[in-house]
Design a protein around this nucleic acid. Structure first.
Lengths: 339, 339
DNA sequence: GACAATCGTCGAACCGGTTCGCAAATGTCA
DNA sequence: TGACATTTGCGAACCGGTTCGACGATTGTC
């Protein structure tokens, strides 16, 4: 392994001079700088990350805590992860991926051992057990997902309330008067997936405001339960003319269910989902949807995190809670209800 | 920050004694060991990862290189990633996620700076530019995906040849005589996605052997192209009675295409895909499929990698190329062709 | 020509662990 | 009681970087 000592020797200077020549933190003559650079190239020198971390107390790594829970819709998580990882790299950071089932103790391990300069938490729950650990950590943290208590952290999330209202209003404008909202499985809500009831509560309230009926139910997360559950719903609410899906698995299962029942979208039923456009295209999800913007959220979180990491001023700045405005991507799956 | 010096002082011993008490690499009296452990608990000591890496030249981190390419089916990658990350953690390692577009230079950066003890490469291409870098690196590497040259590396992959033969034979046994095989987009193959033509070539050969017709074509990776492409195929080969899908996006798009054409599976058409069971359940993919076993492959790769990292004997062991035998998961999407 | 300021470089210390060699304390046996 | 082995803990060196203070050589100023 080639160290900075080897470079210094090859360039005929001291280790400290070599270091300064490379970092530029002190004036070094052009000639010496050239000799050092040549030596670096000739020997193929790359600084040892551990040594540098020890000396500077900066690892240039951010921790990405992704929680994969039973009944959670995992594949969507990948989009957030890529947003985080790609943005981190653009800003000069690598990404340590942490998928431990026990997020709190994994978080403690990572922060206490100083493996990372900052953290991004995905899939944050209402009362997330990881948050006290994160607040106590010396590194700053950014969340994707809105918890009950945002203090001391930067938070980014889709505006699920507005999403719920948009779904209802869109249907209402078209003339629908009875809707069904299929949320994530009850499990997810119990565990504190706040976004589920944030959307649901707002949708219910908006329905009341508009004077229309909204049946809010929990869905399932995979076959065969998800198909059965959708059939059950359509049996239970035969007069409903619109379906709102805050549940990706349900959106994937719906085409077949409707086909089997001989129903056509949007003639017999109008449908709006909530997922990213990339997802819709890859999985052939044919319904208009509220864009969940996972890449944007991941990007925003990392940007803010790095700002805090890198400037001492950033550390002191007030914490932000920022919502991405939902946008409806039209895929022609809604229309006026059949009279 | 609390260091081992603080622990030593609190326990009334030297730093070296504290270190030995914790590592157990030398005999330390029970009483002193107790005092050290108490101090650790009282002060909340966790070793600094950078310092330890510097001293031991072991980071307890493995690098995970995931390549997300245009037209590649990204969501399936998550299953591999989780298999790797979870297994790594079980064995005491953390995972550095690298998603750079330029995999080769990212790999060089990671290995040269000694950030990781070993590497897992996903989505390995026939003539992968990352492999020369990996072979030159001081850390061992394991691949998921079979390249042209496996020398110096441990390789794990699904037996795609056998998968191709199984698909054909299964259809042949049922009485089918004309099949269509939809592969990944041409892009993927051009870039060296060997698994595509490994399956395809084996399928073609087996079809010849059985004396049946197999139309092998490239598919698309997303809507609306993927739907159009499937429709075009069914138009072009009206006599085909069986469809083989080595393309997840095509499997997701097919139900709607068939519905629009008024075709029923398996009465009008028999279908076999190639994807994991977890995937099929979450995305309501209703076709029998060859299990791609992503979690198993990730797990195998990490296991072997850690074996090589941890034992000096492991380093010397001969390199392995191991194939997972394909298994057909029956979802009742195949039957004898309509006469 | 004396003195101060600036520039370029070096030596040494430090970051926080681990590990080697050694010595003091204790125990064993003749 | 003395010789010797064993246990137990300590000091120092090292891993590979960064950074501070100092110092000699230039350059500038009056």
């Amino acid at each position: 392994m080639v160290t900075i000592g080897d470079v210094a020797r090859a360039a005929g200077v001291s280790r400290s001079t070599a270091s300064y020549a490379l970092s530029g933190k002190r004036a070094i003559s052009a000639e010496v700088r050239q000799r050092v650079n040549d030596a670096v190239l000739r020997l193929g020198y790359t600084p040892n990350a551990g040594a540098r971390a020890l000396a500077t107390s900066q690892t240039m790594v951010i921790g990405l805590l992704a929680q994969f829970l039973e009944d959670e819709f995992a594949p969507a998580m990948l989009e957030y992860m890529l947003g985080v990882s790609d943005t981190a790299r653009e800003l000069g950071y690598d990404t340590l991926l942490v998928t431990d089932a026990d997020g709190a103790s994994a978080l403690r391990r990572i922060t206490d051992s100083r493996m990372v300069d900052g953290l991004v938490l995905l899939n944050v729950a209402q009362d997330d057990v990881r948050l006290p650990v994160l607040r106590a950590a010396p590194q700053p943290g950014a969340l994707v997902g809105l918890p009950g208590d945002c203090s001391g952290l930067d938070v980014f999330d889709l505006d699920f309330e507005e999403a719920g209202r948009m779904m209802v209003d869109h249907m209402h404008r078209l003339g629908h008067r009875e809707l069904i909202l299929v949320s994530q499985p009850e499990h997810v809500v119990e565990r504190g997936g706040a976004y589920v009831w944030r959307l649901q509560d707002a949708a219910l309230q908006q329905a009341r405001l508009r004077g229309i009926t909204l049946h809010a139910v929990f869905g399932e997360s995979r076959q065969p339960a998800v198909g059965r559950s959708l059939n059950g719903l359509l049996d239970s609410y035969p007069d409903a003319t619109g379906l709102l899906l805050n549940n990706e698995a349900a959106a994937a299962a719906l085409p077949t269910v409707l086909h089997e029942r001989g129903l056509t979208v949007p003639d017999d039923l109008s449908v709006i989902g909530r997922y990213s456009d990339g997802f819709a295209r890859v999985f052939s999800l044919p319904y208009s949807s509220i864009e969940s913007a996972p890449d944007r959220l991941g990007r925003m979180a990392v940007r803010q995190l790095v700002r805090r990491i890198e400037s001492e001023a950033g550390r002191a700045e007030p914490y932000v809670v920022r919502f991405v405005a939902p946008e409806l991507v039209d895929r022609k799956s809604t229309a006026a209800p059949r009279t």
